[in-house]
Amino acid sequence: MLQTAQDFLSFIFNFDLLQEYGWRLVAGLKITFEVVTISVLIGFVLSYFVCSARMSRNVILSGAAVAYSTFFRGTPLLCQLYLVYYGAGEIRPFLTDVGLWWFFRDAYYCCIFTFSLNTAAYQSEILRGALSSVPKGQIEAGASLGLSTYRIARHIVWPQAFLIALRPLGNELISMIKASALAAIVTLLDLMGQTRFIFARTFDFSVYLYAAVIYLAIVELIRRVWGRIDKAFSRHVIAAAR
């Protein structure tokens, strides 16, 4: 009985493996961290423009924004990634001519490019929802106080919208961390990529569980920290509710 229990434990967690390949997981974690941070930040900036286009009165502009977010939210991220990564190879002469081949040649940049566009679509929807949930009366009240459009946006609309958007933006960050594992499929050695590499070398299943523990730890950490941030920013709201 003890024999089988030990056997089972070593089947799940092989510590020698960590000794030999642990550094690879750390290196992969660094790549995952870079790709996600850069993509989410670029996506955040892009989402502002997508959201502005979406809410503009210009039909062409808002139509383009709707098409953009429908495409990126309605198709699998993996499909988008293939389209960029393999598609770039097809138009290589053109990309070389315009001096962008170095960018699209690299799986690292392709991932950042695709993830940024993808998360921008999701973040713009979050932003739009948050902005439109600020009551119209708030804007009118600002106008009746004689504030300029900029001041109304800066001091009245954005602080309230930001508060509403904070929580879903945290969820989007978490789902980007999880989605970034797809980078491994286009040969990038992120956490998932290194995991697959180690598995291909050792055929040791426990490496997948180590990767799971790492992802889980990151996601839980962000969830907790984000909860704190959310609480800190909305403390006046909670005080008012009491």
Partner: peptide, 13 residues
Amino acid sequence: GIPDLLSLFIVYF
């Protein structure tokens, strides 16, 4: 908490 791709591999392998 883990990527869906990882869940897939964990269940499969």
